[in-house]
Computed example of a mutant assay.
Amino acid sequence: MTSLDKVVKPKTKRSKRFLQKRESKLIENTKNAMLIKGGNTSEIVTQTLKDIIYMYAKPHGTYQSRKNITRPFEDQTSLEFFSKKSDCSLFLFGSHNKKRPNNLIFGRIFDYHVLDMIELGIEKFVSLKDIKNSKCAEGTKPMLIFAGDVFQLNNEYKRLKSIFIDFFRGPNVPRVRLAGLENVLHFTALDGRIYMRSYKVLLKKSGCKTPRIELEEMGPSVDFVLRRTHLASDDLYKTALKQPKALKPKKKKNISSDAFGTTYGRIHMQKQDLSKLQTRKMKGLKKRKGEKAAAEELEGDSPKRSKLE
C-alpha cells in the first residue's frame, strides 16, 4: 500500500476542500489529461505532444517534461500513481525506440486503474508551426468527424474512437454560438491507417443570413498506424459506463421522443358526438327539408304522412 492509498483525514479546511473536489459526483468534472515523455523520445514525438497540449489539453492537461523510464504495456503502476497524484483520467505516453519508432500510447483510467490503452505509430507528421496559416485560440472546443466504416465495425477502432472523443471533446458547455465553431478535427480510417487533420472554419459572406463555410488546414497533421491494444473486458467496460440512478431520466407515460429530440405525446379522449356540435348560424349551414327527413329516418322516427293520404 502506497502513501496515496491510505485513508487520509483532513486536518485543515484547505485539505478538506481538496479531498471534497476528488470525491465522486453526480456530474463529473471535465476529464484531465497527462502527457508523459518516455525514457527515450524523438523530436517528432516531443513536438506532437507539445502541439496537442497547445491545441487541446490546455487548461485541462499537464505536461511532464521529465523523462519517465516505464513501459505501460508491461507495468502500469507508475501511470496509476501519476493519475492519482495529479487527478487525471486520460494519459498520452510518447516514446521512441528501434522496434517501435515514434510511438504514442493513448489511454484512459477508471478508478485509478488503467482501463484502455491503444498504441499508435507516427508515420508522417506536420506540426503547427510548419503550416503558415492562422490558428485557433487555446481551449477551443473542436467539432469531431470520423470517416470510415471500420469505426463502426471493428471493436478496436470503436474503442479508439471513444478514446479520441474523450481526449479531444473539451469541456461540456450548455450553449454554442455560431462564431465559436471554428475548429474541425477530422479522423479518417483507411487501409489500416488513421489520418488526423485539423482545420479552421472560415465564415465568408454569402449574400444571405447563412454564411458560406470554408475549411483551411492549420495543423497538426498526423498519419497513425495501429500497433498494440490493451482493452478492458466487457464487464469492466460496462461498469465504467454505468450511470447513477439520479441522472437517469424518469419515464413518463404516453410521452416519447425520436432521434432528433422531437417530443410526441398521446392523448386519450372520449368519442365525440359531432351531430350535437354547435355550429355558426348561417344560411349555408342550415339543413334542408330532404336532409331533415333522412336524419329522422336514421333516428328511427317515421316521417309525417301527407294530408292526401
Rank of each mutant, 00 (worst) to 15 (best):
L92S: 11
T210F: 03
G180N: 14
T48K: 07
K135W: 00
R305D: 02
F167G: 05
Q278I: 04
D191P: 02
E28M: 15
P142E: 03
A246C: 05
R14Y: 13
G192H: 03
K37L: 15
P303M: 03
R169E: 11
E309L: 04
G139F: 07
V173C: 13
T239F: 09
T210W: 01
N172T: 13
K50S: 15
S275L: 10
V176E: 13
Q64T: 07
F110W: 15
G139T: 04
K141N: 09
N154L: 01
Q278K: 10
V176D: 08
S221Y: 12
E138M: 06
K287S: 04
V7C: 12
Y63E: 08
Q270G: 05
H230Y: 06
V184H: 04
L90D: 02
A293I: 10
E299W: 09
M1I: 11
K158S: 04
E23Y: 11
R66F: 14
V45I: 14
G170Y: 00
I44Y: 07
I145F: 06
F187K: 02
M218F: 09
T62D: 13
G170I: 01
L19H: 14
Y112R: 14
Q47W: 01
R212Q: 09
L308K: 08
T30E: 10
E296V: 02
N102G: 09
F260M: 11
G284Y: 03
E182P: 04
D166V: 01
K205A: 14
I213V: 15
P174G: 07
D234G: 09
E182F: 01
D273G: 00
K242I: 13
K307H: 03
T70M: 14
D51T: 03
S134E: 15
A57Q: 04
G39L: 13
G39N: 11
K281D: 03
G94L: 07
N102M: 04
V201L: 05
D130T: 01
E23Q: 15
S257V: 06
I109C: 04
D5W: 12
L274K: 08
Q76Y: 10
R175H: 14
I255H: 06
K31M: 13
P249T: 02
F110L: 11
L90S: 02
L90H: 10
H96M: 12
N102D: 15
K276C: 09
K13Y: 12
N68G: 09
P171E: 14
R193G: 04
A295G: 03
L115I: 07
D223A: 12
R108W: 05
I118D: 05
K253D: 13
T70C: 10
V150D: 09
L90W: 07
Q243M: 11
I213G: 01
E23S: 14
G121K: 10
L185S: 03
K50T: 10
R227Q: 15
I194Y: 02
L26V: 14
E217I: 11
L160S: 00
S256Q: 14
F187A: 00
K209G: 09
F260T: 04
D116V: 08
R22K: 15
R169Y: 08
S257L: 09
R193C: 13
I118R: 01
Q152R: 08
R17E: 13
E296Y: 11
L4F: 11
P249M: 01
A295S: 10
K37F: 15
I44D: 07
C136K: 07
K304N: 05
G38E: 11
K135Q: 09
N155R: 05
P59K: 05
I53R: 06
R228P: 03
S127D: 01
A147R: 12
K98H: 10
V222K: 00
